[in-house]
Design a protein around this nucleic acid. Structure first.
Lengths: 221, 221
DNA sequence: TTCTTGTCACCTAGGTGTTAATAT
DNA sequence: ATATTAACACCTAGGTGACAAGAA
């Protein structure tokens, strides 16, 4: 079985309608991380991820405040998968600690040469996580069907974008609040006791830079 | 078989008498790196290193210019080994690219809690590299003797120090010239064509900070 | 008007030798 | 006199959103 790490954060993003920036260089935040249970400690496994289109639609950001359907999806991008770079490894290694896909990057560059996942901007995607058992039997191909297991966490769905479409800047502000690399854009002092909500991340604590409060409400999923 | 990476750099250091700084936090430069050949691509191997005292002596730095014997060695430090963190892994993985021991740190803290290699300052050491074949047989303990191979590169010998003992600052300057993290201490512009020697590192290119040119010559090995 | 691209300041994270102060 | 320690400035390396300019 597999447990999604930082589920609370994913839920919070998902509630606002997660947006993932795609760039030529590639990025992805939050990072997909899982805890794995119930592997054979001595057996070898490959871990990998891929991304499925959620629907056959292209979206557009109406007045930077709500998602509307722009029409049919653009031609599918090359269907790449991302193998966790530690693959293959023993079950014991994978279960020892949290497995982090921090090398997995999303790009919109169709000619990408770095092995990143290629997605269409303004389309919606569902990440999938696959565990493949490396069968030591000689005729292992025959058992391919039963030697893997797929895990889908719906709260990790997102819209690929080249720039935040803003939903009243909630997505931006949640990213700034939760991503240590974006600390430079925070306004409050993280040591300020006013910003400590026991048992929670310092989420939604950075709002002063919200320069463009939209009047129209953002649309959910 | 195993090939030492950056052998030219190790040779250059060794000629001056390599010094490795030991600190509480631990460090090691140059990093020990090897290319490996001739493994069974499908078999599992553990890679590890340890450090043997070269002799039973303690040294001292006479007038910061030459090594003299200070007497018998201090009590031996806890004899730790450093497993490459990717261990165990398949031969194919190890041979795919250069294996780098960049997580291996040297410390003089006898109470070290980070799994670093503990050494005595002012003592000389010889790094050793071990390849252990993970024998799938049930009675593999019986074959332990034949299931590992040890590689020693004499050019990686060094004296552990808490601060550079300087030998006319040659060691310091070579570290500054060859370690990208010490760029801040370089005096010349690395883009300056005068500093380009074709086919060689920008070694010995930073000397202006040599403030204390000793009159007595440094002693070699 | 909407979307994309490239550059940038500002961070995290961590590896250097230097230096002053302290210990032996 | 020699050795050790801790704080420090200065780097490498790389992950952020902001922004201005350009493209569609």
């Amino acid at each position: 079985s597999v447990q999604l790490e930082m589920k609370a954060l994913w839920d919070e993003f998902n509630q606002l309608g997660t947006e993932m920036i795609v760039t030529k260089a590639g990025r992805m935040f939050p990072t997909f991380q899982v805890k794995i249970f119930g592997m054979d400690p001595m057996a070898d496994y490959m871990l990998l991820m891929d991304f499925l289109p959620v629907d056959d639609k292209r979206y557009y950001a109406f007045h930077s405040s709500s998602w509307l359907v722009a029409g049919k999806a653009d031609p599918a991008t090359p269907g790449r998968v991302h193998y966790h770079p530690d693959s293959p490894a023993k079950g014991a290694q994978w279960m020892k600690q949290i497995v982090s896909f921090d090398k997995l990057k999303l790009t919109n560059n169709l000619l990408d040469d770095n092995g990143h996942i290629i997605l269409n901007s303004m389309h919606r995607y569902q990440p999938r996580f696959h565990v493949v058992y490396v069968d030591p039997r000689k005729d292992s191909e025959k058992y391919a069907e039963e030697n893997y297991k797929t895990f889908v966490f719906e709260e990790t769905r997102f819209t690929a974008v080249t720039a935040y479409q803003n939903h009243r800047f909630q997505i931006t502000q949640l990213k700034i609040a939760s991503n240590p690399f974006a600390k430079g854009f925070r306004d409050c002092d993280p040591e300020d006791p006013r910003n400590h909500r026991p048992g929670s991340l310092p989420i939604m604590s950075a709002f002063a830079r919200t320069r463009n409060p939209m009047s129209s409400p953002p649309q959910q999923n």
